[in-house]
Design a protein around this nucleic acid. Structure first.
Lengths: 228, 228
DNA sequence: TCATTCCAGAAAATCGATTTTTGCAAAAAA
DNA sequence: TTTTTTGCAAAAATCGATTTTCTGGAATGA
């Protein structure tokens, strides 16, 4: 657990269900690592933290459990999944496989509109700082970049799974320390990916994406409980 | 919608949460096609159909929406997803990719225990009839066979996605008509897959699995709304 | 001493009622 | 006629209270 967290200043953003709001807020907090891995969530605490009633809260918890960001114990509530090096390896490996598939498809289907959106996304990512105060903006730009890169892939289910794995992966990555030099290197990958995308060099892009995920994996490992 | 459906004779099977029970029952009914594709679910009707209160019912609906067996409209409840030929193609294609990946891994990791379980699963599948009265038993044996085939793959997330796609695929397959000759052919595949698995002929098995899914896809197409 | 049973207190799950939102139809205005 | 507004029933979403289940420690018995 961590600091307090008001859900919304302006009471109830119009037309959006309370359950969805808690879902999104909780999802973000889980990915950001605001809860301790393995922690059992006290429902009444969440209730006051997010300022909602039991029903929408429980609906959000159920959705998150189905999504894989929470574990549901039989009659003992919900718990934050633990971090585990072998699971991270599984996630990283699958990400590589699935994202490479989507990348090749995107290269075939991507049109001029996609190219401009990709350039725009990369530009926004470049401009965002990874400084503590701006980290959320950067994270959003980063996610948007990777999403844009693969978007033209005509496979909704593939993109869905990739998104899910990305969220899982980020649980680790955002908790792990990283040095500026490595961050710089990763950011360089983004730029090179754009270049390769515009030129439709699928093979090279594929290799670079593999490398990109592999390096991210190395960093993310830092979040795993130390080995005995 | 269809016929009535009592959830449980013996009120509340011990230790299992009501929400989970509705979840499972609803999930099965959705996969079996007991609801019309595109239908909007009347919550109060489900309430009496499954004999539960609102809270556990809504929790189940939320979980199913996160799983992809329901769509959640903004403030207008839940609807059964429509059947669409292009989505089916996406599902079938992805199944091929993912299951082939898992198959190769399973062939490497599978041990003697796996081999016997696989033989057992295939035997049970052979003995089960696809007659109307026995169809549920066959479906269960069929699912168990495919699950066993890929089980040794060391990738929990891959298996999770495969399971999810399988459920999606079955929504189509179970609605589509099939002739006995084709069914016989598919069942032959199962037997051959076992043979190839025992011999660890990954390449041939891979091709056969591709063919198997492709043929299933052809059948499942029959469930899609007719083209204009 | 160790294992088992029993008993609050706490937490989760569920229910019934209330509040909010939607959908539709009838009335009013253009 | 066509479009917009208004009002009301139906449905969804949410709340507060109740019921059920779990947990850990004290009491009991071996």
């Amino acid at each position: 657990m961590s600091t307090s967290h008001p859900l919304a200043e302006t009471h109830s953003a119009s037309g959006i269900t309370a359950a969805s709001q808690v879902f999104n807020a909780l999802k973000q907090d889980l990915i950001r690592g605001r809860f301790t891995a393995g922690e059992k969530l006290a429902i009444s605490a969440l209730k006051s933290r997010y300022q909602v009633g039991l029903s929408p809260l429980r609906e959000a918890l159920n959705r998150l459990a189905a999504y894989g960001l929470l574990e549901q114990l039989n009659q003992r509530g919900f718990r934050v999944p633990t971090l585990d090096a072998s699971e991270l390896a599984d996630i990283a490996h699958l990400r590589t496989q699935l994202e490479c598939m989507a990348l090749v498809q995107a290269f075939q289907a991507g049109d001029a509109e996609w190219e401009s959106q990709l350039l725009a996304a990369q530009h926004r990512l470049r401009r965002a700082d990874q400084t503590p105060g701006e980290i959320e903006r950067w994270e959003q730009a980063h996610q948007h970049f990777h999403r844009t890169l693969l978007a033209p892939s005509g496979s909704p289910w593939l993109l869905r799974f990739i998104e899910q794995l990305h969220d899982q992966f980020d649980r680790y990555r955002r908790l792990a320390p990283s040095d500026p030099a490595t961050r710089e290197l990763l950011d360089q990958h983004h730029a090179e990916l754009v270049t390769l995308a515009l030129a439709r060099h699928a093979g090279e892009a594929r290799e670079l994406l593999e490398l990109h995920i592999h390096l991210s994996h190395q960093i993310a490992k830092g979040a795993c409980p130390s080995e005995a």
